[in-house]
Amino acid sequence: MTRTDPSDLLAVAARWADPAGWPVPLRFDRAERRYARLAAGAGHEVWALSWLPGQGTDLHDHGGSSGAFLVVAGTLTEETVSGGQLRPHRLVAGSGRRFGARHVHVVTNRDARPAVSVHVYRPALSRMTRYRLVAGQLLVAEVAEAGVAW
């Protein structure tokens, strides 16, 4: 295994891209998107997420944490707010995205096949804010706390 620059969160995600090396099994659930924490340490944490077709997140931020995510299998669509509208960005297996502490997005599996992604956050997630986009403005819908909501 090669050493990964711990400051490059996308490189950390790439180090965890093989589900065979995960401490938990990869699982899919028709009722809801599945997620599991793979590791924590060195000021960051790593999560695996599985997405069946049609599954996705609400519009949310990461509570002040910076991060990155890498699509390991399948295709995901990330939507970010630009000009008061959601703008989609399609991410195929092997592609990823770094983001800062103020990043707000929606991630969805719009494809016909399951998808898997690895997400890294620095510092570890302590809260996430969910939003509604109304008339081009982000409005807070809920603040979810770690240990309570996930």
Rank of each mutant, 00 (worst) to 15 (best):
A31Q: 14
E142P: 03
R122V: 08
V143M: 10
W150G: 04
R127P: 01
G64D: 05
Y121T: 02
G64F: 04
R34L: 04
G21A: 14
P88Y: 00
G63M: 07
T75E: 04
G67K: 07
L125V: 08
A17E: 13
G136I: 13
A13D: 10
D61T: 03
L138Q: 11
H62W: 09
G56E: 08
L52T: 11
H89W: 12
P6G: 11
L138K: 11
T129E: 00
R113Q: 10
H44R: 07
V134I: 11
A135D: 12
A13F: 13
G96A: 01
D111W: 02
L139A: 12
G83D: 01
H119N: 05
R130F: 07
A68C: 08
Q55S: 09
E145C: 00
L138M: 14
H60T: 07
A42W: 03
A112C: 07
L70D: 02
P53D: 07
Q85L: 14
L9R: 10
F99G: 13
R98C: 12
H60D: 04
V12T: 12
A146K: 07
E32N: 11
R90C: 03
V104N: 08
A124N: 06
G21H: 14
R130P: 03
Y35V: 03
S65Q: 05
A115Q: 08
L133R: 09
S117K: 07
G54E: 15
W150K: 07
P19L: 03
D18N: 10
D61W: 03
L38N: 10
T75G: 00
R132H: 14
Y131N: 02
T77C: 00
P23V: 11
N109V: 06
G41Y: 01
V143S: 14
P114A: 09
M128D: 01
V118Y: 03
A39Y: 10
Q55W: 12
V118P: 08
L70C: 04
R113D: 09
R34D: 02
R3E: 13
D5T: 15
Y121V: 06
V134K: 09
V12Y: 15
V107S: 13
T2H: 07
A135S: 07
A73F: 01
G100C: 08
V104Y: 07
R122N: 08
A115N: 06
A36G: 06
D5V: 12
T57N: 15
L125I: 13
F99S: 13
R97W: 10
V72T: 04
W16R: 11
R87L: 02
A141T: 00
R127Y: 00
R127D: 03
F28W: 10
R102T: 15
R34I: 02
P53F: 06
A73Y: 03
V81N: 01
V140T: 13
S82K: 09
S95A: 08
E32R: 15
R102P: 09
A68P: 06
Q137T: 15
A48H: 07
V24T: 15
L49V: 15
A11I: 08
H60C: 03
E45F: 08
R87G: 00
A141N: 01
R127Q: 15
L52G: 12
A141I: 00
